[in-house]
Design a protein around this nucleic acid. Structure first.
Lengths: 229, 229
DNA sequence: GGAATGGTTCGATTATGATCGAACTATGAG
DNA sequence: CTCATAGTTCGATCATAATCGAACCATTCC
């Protein structure tokens, strides 16, 4: 093993795509479980476990065991600041887009994040719900009265979703768009809804969500987005 | 090849020991040649060349060809700030490497961070400027009216420093003290001023800034710090 | 008490990329 | 022109560490 300054250790930790995705997911500030992070990182649970152990022992993340779950958060605010700074640099020099495989555009457009919709479509839905006043962000993300009506009209049974353990609404940071999208029981129910109605279907063996022609039109009409005035 | 967010690219670049050593060497602010950097990185010229090309194309360093030499510097001040922040994190969780050589106390006391003053002296100056009301932190760090007077009295030409692209004042996190110090055009000008007036000089081949006896006294008088009441 | 689920450990495989030798280009010196 | 030095390119080698299958622990549910 060669000698290197400490920044190499940190850099190498952040430098692995799986770990970088996990860390990015944690930038939302919410605690995530090991399996959620495995999905975010695009790796299996075993692999994720080893990554998480390494990140923890370097202090980049913190682990809190609760029952049979392990919840992870960023180590402290300074870690978040560092990641933010790196994103800033990366964005500035954004001309190095290599390896844009054919899968990429589809993944960026719509994909599954754990069990809910992520990607451009997910962000669009979130923005639209916020703009319409259906969702508001207080301490937690909550569905307003009119929002409840909207969901019920869609055919979503909110009563069945409510659970003392699992939050109805959660925001989740989108790594490709770096914007929030909707997670939680409602986020899951909505994605299921889109699948059930045939607006979209999941591509087997990948995280891609493919919208049908009519599905996309209906989706975009249902979740309008304010154009520049 | 797997998909990863942009921060993974930057992380991976910094994550290699040879490259990390090169970048650390460049933190002195001096331009170094390819072979000097090869030595700093502990690799042969061929290997260094490939590293340098990659760092350049990511914008982390800049290359200036001159005769048969290639001179390299950090891409810009923001890169220096990022490295500084990573060193801070690394130092905090520094269970692996102390190597507190004889150089360390001097480095901790005063050193160059890209182009401005860091270390205890840098932090002291920053605190003093804040306490005196010369600097205030609003959205951005800004120099107040009285602060402008103070700088002008010191002999610093603020007009010459103002630029639409580069912020006059920026705070930069100090890794040894874990406190902010002053970066930006003004930070650079102040360090230059201390060198010009003979209060301090830079040690060759390192980041250490050494204050002369009289320089230190003058500096401490110019930037008083509130003792505990 | 199972059974199911979330998480971790172990071992073997594999892919990435760091590395250097050797050959090549370009600038400068005598 | 010849030689020396600085830097880069190419190709082959090799080490690191990311990955997953499988087995194993721990907690909760029934």
């Amino acid at each position: 093993m060669r000698e290197g300054p400490d920044i190499a250790l940190i850099g190498a930790l952040i430098g692995d795509p799986a770990r970088a995705n996990m860390l990015t997911a944690l930038m939302s500030g919410k605690a995530l479980t090991a399996s959620e992070l495995a999905l975010e990182g695009g790796v299996t649970a075993q692999t994720a476990s080893s990554h998480l152990t390494r990140l923890e022992s370097a202090g980049l993340i913190a682990r809190r065991r609760q029952g049979r779950h392990s919840y992870f958060t960023l180590g402290d605010a300074e870690v978040g600041d560092l990641l933010e700074a790196m994103m800033g640099l990366a964005a500035k020099r954004g001309h190095l887009r290599t390896r844009t495989g054919p899968k990429d555009p589809a993944l960026r457009k719509a994909r599954v994040c754990y069990n809910h919709l992520a990607g451009e479509k997910g962000v669009r839905m979130f923005d639209s719900l916020m703009a319409a006043g259906y969702l508001i962000e207080r301490e937690e993300l909550t569905l307003t009265r009119v929002g409840e009506e909207f969901m019920t009209d869609l055919g979503i049974d909110l009563d069945r979703l409510s659970s003392p353990r699992r939050p109805l609404c959660k925001s989740c940071l989108d790594w490709s768009a770096r914007r929030s999208h909707l997670a939680g029981a409602l986020g899951e129910a909505l994605l299921d809804h889109f699948i059930d109605t045939g607006w979209a279907r999941r591509e087997v063996g990948s995280r891609i969500v493919r919208f049908t022609r009519v599905g996309e039109v209906a989706f975009d009409r249902l979740f309008p987005v304010a154009e520049a005035a």
